[in-house]
Amino acid sequence: MSTVTGADLERPASEPPTRRISLSRRIKDNVATVLVSLAFLIAVVPLVWVLVTVVSRGAPALFSADWWGTSLSGILPEEYEGGVYHAIYGTLIQALIATVIAVPIGILAAIYLVEYGRGALARTTSFMVDILAGVPSIVAALFVFAAFISILGAPQSAFMVSLALVLLMLPVVIRNTEEMLRLVPDRLRESAYALGIPKWKTILRIVLPTAFSGTVTGVMLAIARIMGETAPVLVLVGYSRAINYDPFQGNMASLPLLMYSELSNPEAAGQYRIWGAALTLIIIIMIFQVGASLLSRFSAIPK
């Protein structure tokens, strides 16, 4: 029986729990930390590796005088000349047409899911959006081929590619818009109803403008995603080494298609053009990606 002295009261009754962590638990904790950090490094390696490869091999082409302003029309396979503006045009116009079709449908479908959708149809729609997001691009391309080219007899063209891209773009636009619409506080909707404004006007004038920049971000991300798609252009349009401005008829190049067709070029100039086009494509996609993330800084919705 020891008497309690002042010094004893100063001391904690038990040792702090952290000291009692056993060696095995500490080892496990440290091993987990190491493994988890390692996993992140492993994930970064391929990204850096791919980017370094593309930039180092593609840069020479981009600095040549003709790269941005001419096509490959009349250039021999072994010549280090010509440019890819015909392919850049194709990539951009196909993405543009797809965007013009997909964005209104996508935004309306998102409005349906958020503002109107109740019951079985809404659940089915939401489910099918997920399924559509998982449809491989080659299947979307085959569908357009089967429906429009085989059965309706339309010719192969850049427009067919755009139709396939619409299918790939829709789920991204719908999901992003949906998320943005759900962030719009109900307070705003209820204030509008209280003023006697009908629902559709509330959506068009209040809800959509509030969610606008977030929606645009989603659209830009969707565009970035579809511009690199190769499967639809392989199936739905022929390759052309010269510029073709008409998306409704004739062959049209695009950056992925140009890269794919130069793969069968055994000359060293083929490699030069492949990596040059790869870097060009990455730069265009990055412009959209960076634009999207800059926009999303302004997309904060008042809570």
Partner: peptide, 27 residues
């Protein structure tokens, strides 16, 4: 306006469902 807008919105939703069905059907 309300009914037109509602029709457009649900139509777009149905279009997504139809797209999946049509992909299967045409293939």
């Amino acid at each position: 306006g309300e009914s037109v807008f509602r029709f457009l919105a649900s139509g777009s939703g149905v279009l997504v469902v139809a797209a999946i069905a049509l992909i299967g059907l045409f293939l």
